[in-house]
Nucleic acid binder design. Structure first.
Lengths: 141, 141
DNA sequence: TCCTGATAAATTGTATACAATTTAATTGTA
DNA sequence: TACAATTAAATTGTATACAATTTATCAGGA
């Protein structure tokens, strides 16, 4: 019928949005004990890999802008996880790096991905397909 | 290596979360002209189908709680789209229904799903697979 | 009927998100 | 070298989200 395109069940956006929120909730029991929120966790994932990068670079990795990152990073600095330092090569940029405490947290976080995949009822192959499709969707956006 | 499980590229959560946010941004140019935010839009999708339901029911359809819905619905009521009314059968519940203006908005929204699928670089088959996987993921959460 | 437990919204507090603007620094160019 | 355009963070304002608590109402049993 005319309005079928507006049915909730016909919107791809809806399960995408709902699943993303539910996954974040799934992380909470594992992130609370190490004192991270979900967004702080994905920031840490990048920093554990790259060691030091600017707010700008962090933002393009994570699809987040300075309006989100600035207060988040200030909080993480206050919590002793990271250091924020102006780049002397280009004073417009702020370089984010890990403190020793931030580096050390990696060993506590290492259990999390395994614990989380246990919460997800997709087979390895399905998770792989989902991963590819989501990245395809992201790729050309 | 030991820390590979913590690489951003190995997290399913990350493209899921990022894609969800990007899709919401994609809606903005089409929702702005009809005066809806993304969350208001998905509320309207349910109301266009069901006509009247409680905040509780709306919340379980949309995976949203009263902390999110109450202020959102008050805003939509102030904007003249919906009516909030205590259920006389059970005074704990609030029944949400559409105003004439809310019903009329459906005809302006009907273009949106088509316009949006034009923004998404997945084939029909891929979108179908994604839909199934996301719902599977949601189903047992 | 009275009281206890359960339920639905609303409220409070915290944490994201992002658009738009502002501030400070840099770059390219006449 | 001035200076306009660009760039990176930060700021401001608005809108979600959700956990935890509170308030009002309802339901079931002694």
């Amino acid at each position: 019928m005319k309005y079928d395109v507006l049915k909730l069940e016909n919107q791809l956006c809806f399960p995408l949005y709902a699943a993303a929120k539910e996954i974040v909730k799934r992380y909470k029991p594992y992130l609370d004990p190490i004192g991270l929120t979900y967004t702080q966790y994905i920031v840490m994932l990048v920093l554990w890999e790259k060691n030091a990068l600017t707010v700008k670079e962090l933002g393009s990795c994570l699809y987040l802008d300075s309006g989100t990152l600035t207060p988040l990073l200030k909080k993480m600095e206050a919590d002793g996880l990271i250091i924020r330092k102006r780049d002397h090569e280009d004073e417009r940029s702020v370089i984010i790096s890990l403190t020793e405490q931030g580096v050390a947290l990696r060993d506590k976080a290492i259990e999390i991905p395994t614990k989380l995949s246990g919460c997800i009822a997709l087979s390895g192959e399905e998770a792989g397909t989902l991963y590819v499709l989501l990245n395809k969707l992201l790729g050309q956006m």
